[in-house]
Design a protein around this nucleic acid. Structure first.
Length: 936
RNA sequence: GGGCGUAUGUCGGAAUUGGUAGACGAGACGGUCUCAAAAACCGUUAGUAGUAAUACUGUGUGAGUUCAAGUCUCACUACGCCCACCA
């Protein structure tokens, strides 16, 4: 039989037998496997889809054989912009395009033999489904979790359309290339930020992959810092700043308020008012893109007022600048230019003092050290770009000029003196001093440990004028000018290396170190100082510990047609009124024009029949909300619906949800690990808090797969011509080959590129399995010589299918098949075992071969269990190392005594050779693993 | 700029979690079968030297910990993804 006939035959069999339908409430233990439902795009199934669906399918098939009631559902995340764009162009309702695409997807999925429970299929665009999405929105609203706020949106004046951040990347409309502007819009918001802490702690009740958890943690962005109150000089007013670096408070040399800050005009000096107002107005007209543009020159205005630094009562100037965001923290910062990049740039531009309060530490601090002030002098010759170094050769390598400061001598004076003494050059121009470094070292000539505070200083050479060097007797070095490459390669001493980096690329010192110029913080590192400063602030009533989250509330409105209508009505008299629950679903109207309005309202706003309605509260004339929900809405709870998909009384019954309990295994793309997963968890936690779902976390394990790239290692795309269509592969090689290949191609969690060569190798493997049929004899039981490898393979495959080790599972099966192939004949049971283990990945061909030997269908049978007693090895070959190098191997019994292993190891021929003339110091025996003989 | 991840033969990738690096597959080369080809089968395949036994080198770079490092620690480089004036 041809493989396509075999495939059809078994697919029909499964369908007619309803082999994969999950039944709510059976006695079997439930197991819920979920894979992200796709957006049914026009281009059909991607080979990437095939990879994750096959992986989960293999797990589902194994779990069923292990006796679980497996729920492995599939549906469609079918709202979204592409369908709407298509509809605008072709003047048809998006739902028609969506239906067409779903048909294609479903046909492809069926061809690939995925064991989805199709009886539970739905699309987010089904009114029966989005009715409940709308209903849940009403619950958010009724519990005070949904509110309206005015938010700037990306607006393309040419397309007359609101753009997502993605479509507006770089401030340019992705579709037409025109410049994106900001437009204020009143939007629905969900109070997601209220759940920041719960979403963080909830992770402990999940089994998400570590990198997935990290993604969530970073997105939530909890930072523990401090609020610090600054009094405004000469007034009784004060303002509060948020900082994560309160340890640097002694280095604060100015403050900055966001242009939107509420106090500004109250505290601005009279003669500065016009200037300040002008700046505020200018910022207001700038769009978010312009304001957040990278590498932009800093702008700002001094407002003529001063703040009092609470820790040292210093008067420091207050500026306003748009690099401070009103929406984060308190909308005001204390600026520490020495230790913050943005503050540094601003201070340089406005010539504000920079005070270093933290020193980087190099070398290793020791107990008893002598202290010195010193310098590292770097001299640059602008004529040829070379740097002045002194080369000590074997006695210290290449260094810059360095030296110790005499009493009362400034760092620069010291540097000038040392340069003259050691190299003779005197005609220098000072370029700059950089941040001091705290360095620890051991001086051989003095046999002493030193701690030095070293100042890196950069000079330019003005002329070759040179005097005689004044060298001590022991100063025996060459003065050499070398270029930057040589410096980077040969100046390896940490202090000098760092100094060079500092002066070459001056900027804020961001890292950890020890505090200086900081009163009671001196000598402490960053974390110690933060803790101590928070303590001090709280004791002195001028600040407090403050937790901040990056995560904001969820902007829940989209100015689009093809989304769930938001079931809210605006009445002049009653304000915003929710629709009555019994009137849901609020259907999308059936029209054929979806042009957005002139002013960026959703296309729904044009459909007056639909918009105009009556107020559910007073019965008067009212208008519907015309914005729709974001794509994320429907996908935030679809996994609950799969538990009870046909319920018309509730989104899912509590009984059904309690039976399935939660999603045991959820797989999807890495790109969704932050946002989709966070939205879904937020949604569930809210439903839990109002008593509608049984668990606070409804997803247990989450794993993310890597992408399937084109054979050229780039993302598959039509324009690059590297797209592989799964249909073509199926036609030429068969479904099972494609499935085996996609599981074998590489580490499941990492990106892999397509290789048709390797695909052929998988075909060969399946051909070999088919050929093995000719070796099957009508014998009873298992072939004795195969039992060990068989049981090892059972164990390996079972473990691997549960741990994403699909590629190694297949490799183990290949080894088993090779073992079979080496024999003259095998038994039916031998053959059936191989077929069963391979069945989850290659279900069609294995069922067929299994039927040919007269066995009943694998999918109705039991998954084999490893007999541990059969895999105990008695003898083992282990390596013998001499000084860590393998010199021989010896055979030992697994339970062999250490003494006897030692004896054998020492007798091995090649070992004897390597012991010759050496003294054995130690013999390390790791039982059953390795012997290492240490010799001198 | 930040966060996360990755780096192993010609290629995709293994490595019992610190214990014989390169499993399995691909490709290449040589052979068997054949009039021939395909398929299949057998052999070789990290590098260098050697007929061989064997020796040396070798998991992005540099240091370190250890009897022992692909695996742990630190620094660096390159690439990928996500985020980004987040204080």
């Amino acid at each position: 039989m041809k493989f396509n006939e075999i495939e059809k035959k078994w697919q029909n069999y499964w369908e007619s037998k309803k082999s994969f339908e999950a039944i709510n409430g059976t006695q079997k233990p439930p197991y819920y496997i979920l894979v992200e439902f796709p957006y049914p795009s026009g281009s059909g199934l991607h080979v990437g889809h095939v990879r994750s669906y096959t992986a989960q399918d293999a797990l589902a098939r194994m779990k069923r054989m292990q006796g679980y009631n497996v729920l492995y559902p599939m549906g469609w995340d079918a709202f979204g912009a592409p369908a709407e764009q298509y509809a605008i162009k072709n003047h048809i309702h998006p739902k028609e395009a969506v239906q067409e695409n779903i048909k294609t997807f479903k046909k492809q999925m069926k061809t690939l033999g995925f064991s989805f429970d199709w009886s539970r299929e739905f699309a987010t665009t089904d009114p029966d489904y989005y009715k409940w999405t709308q209903w849940q929105f009403l619950q958010f609203y009724k519990n005070g979790m949904a509110y309206k706020d005015t938010i700037p949106v990306n607006w393309c004046p040419k397309c007359k359309s609101v753009l997502s951040n993605e479509d507006a990347a770089g401030g340019v409309c992705e579709r037409c290339g025109s410049k994106v502007v900001q437009k204020e819009k009143s939007q629905w918001m969900l109070r997601m930020s209220d759940y920041s802490e719960d979403l963080l702690t909830g992770l402990e009740d999940t089994n998400f992959a570590e990198r997935v958890k990290l993604g969530q943690i970073n997105w939530i962005g909890k930072s523990i810092g401090a609020n610090i109150n600054f009094k405004i000089d000469g007034t009784d007013k004060e303002f509060t700043v948020f900082t994560t670096r309160c340890d640097t408070l002694f280095g604060a040399t100015y403050c900055v308020l966001a242009p939107e800050h509420e106090y500004i005009l109250d505290i601005t000096a009279k003669d500065k008012l016009d200037e300040v107002k002008a700046y505020i107005d200018k910022c207001a007209t700038k769009n978010e893109m312009e304001r957040t543009e990278l590498n932009k020159e800093k702008t700002g205005v001094f407002i003529g007022a001063y703040a009092i630094n609470p820790v040292n009562q210093e008067k420091i100037p207050i500026y306003i600048s748009d690099y401070v965001l009103a929406s984060y923290g308190t909308g005001a910062i204390m600026a520490v230019p020495a230790h913050d990049t943005r503050d540094y740039e601003f201070a340089k531009k406005f010539d504000i003092p920079i005070i270093q309060v933290l020193e980087e530490v190099t070398g290793v601090p020791k107990e008893e050290e002598s202290f010195k002030n010193s310098i590292v002098a770097i001299v640059h010759n602008p004529k040829d770009g070379k740097y002045l170094t002194i080369n000590w050769g074997k006695n210290g390598g290449r260094l810059f000029v360095g030296g110790t400061r005499c009493d009362g001598e400034s760092a620069v004076d010291c540097a000038v003196r040392e340069i003259a003494e050691e190299t003779g050059y005197t005609d220098l121009e000072l370029i700059g001093e950089d941040f001091k470094i705290n360095h620890h070292y051991y001086a051989y000539n003095k046999d002493k440990y030193f701690e030095i505070e070293a100042t890196p200083i950069l000079f330019e050479l003005k002329s070759d004028k040179r005097e005689k060097q004044k060298l001590d007797e022991d100063e025996n070095f060459e003065v050499e000018w070398v270029d930057k490459k040589v410096v980077e390669k040969e100046v390896v001493y940490e202090l000098h290396k760092k100094s060079f980096e500092y002066v070459l690329d001056p900027g804020a010192m961001i890292g950890d170190g020890i505090h200086i110029n900081s009163g009671f913080l001196n000598g402490l590192n960053k974390q110690e100082a933060i803790d101590k400063m928070i303590e001090w602030l709280e004791e002195n009533g001028c600040g407090e510990k403050k937790v901040n989250y990056k995560m904001r509330d969820w902007i829940f409105s989209r100015q689009r047609f093809w989304g769930e209508p938001i079931p809210m009505i605006y009445c002049e008299k009653c304000g915003w009124v929710p629709m009555k629950e019994e009137d849901l679903p609020l259907l999308l109207p059936d029209v054929a024009e979806y042009e957005p309005t002139e002013d960026g309202e959703s296309p729904l706003a044009n459909i007056t029949d639909w918009v105009n309605t009556t107020c559910p509260c007073c019965g008067g004339a009212a208008r519907r909300e015309t914005d729709t929900m974001p794509n994320w809405a429907g996908s935030s709870w679809y996994f609950l619906r799969f538990m009870d998909p046909h319920n018309d009384k509730a989104f899912a019954s509590m009984d059904a949800m309690k039976y399935w309990n939660r999603v045991d295994w959820y797989n999807g793309g890495m790109e969704h690990t932050a946002r989709h997963l966070l939205y879904a968890r937020f949604w569930v936690q809210f439903l839990y808090n109002i008593g509608l779902v049984p668990n606070k976390e409804m997803i247990w394990t989450r794993v993310s797969h890597g992408m399937v790239l084109g054979s050229n290692n780039e993302k598959m795309s039509k324009s690059k011509g590297n797209v592989i269509n799964p249909d073509d592969i199926v036609k030429e090689y068969g479904v099972d080959t494609l499935r085996v290949y996609e599981m074998f191609m590489g580490d499941y969690q990492m990106d892999v590129s397509w290789s048709t060569d390797t695909l052929r190798g998988c075909k060969r493997f399946l051909d070999k399995v088919i050929r093995l049929y000719d070796k099957v004899e009508d014998k009873k039981g298992f072939t004795a010589s195969l039992e060990m490898i068989q049981n090892k393979t059972i164990k390996k495959v079972t473990d691997d299918l549960l741990n994403l080790g699909y590629n190694t599972a297949i490799s183990a099966l290949m080894i088993l098949a090779n073992n079979y192939d080496n024999l003259e004949s095998i038994s039916k049971d031998d053959y059936n075992l191989l077929l069963t283990l391979l069945n989850p990945i290659a279900p069609h061909v294995t069922e067929e071969l299994n039927e040919m030997i007269g066995y009943s269908p694998i999918c109705e049978g039991k998954w084999p269990v490893c007999d541990e007693s059969k895999i105990v090895e008695e003898e083992k070959e282990i390596a013998v190392q001499v000084n860590g190098k393998v010199r021989a191997t010896i055979n030992i019994r697994v339970d062999e005594e250490e003494e006897s292993i030692k004896e054998k190891a020492l007798k091995a021929e090649n070992v004897i050779k390597h012991l010759d003339g050496k003294e054995v110091v130690k013999i390390i025996v790791i039982k059953g693993k390795i012997v290492n003989i240490v010799v001198k």
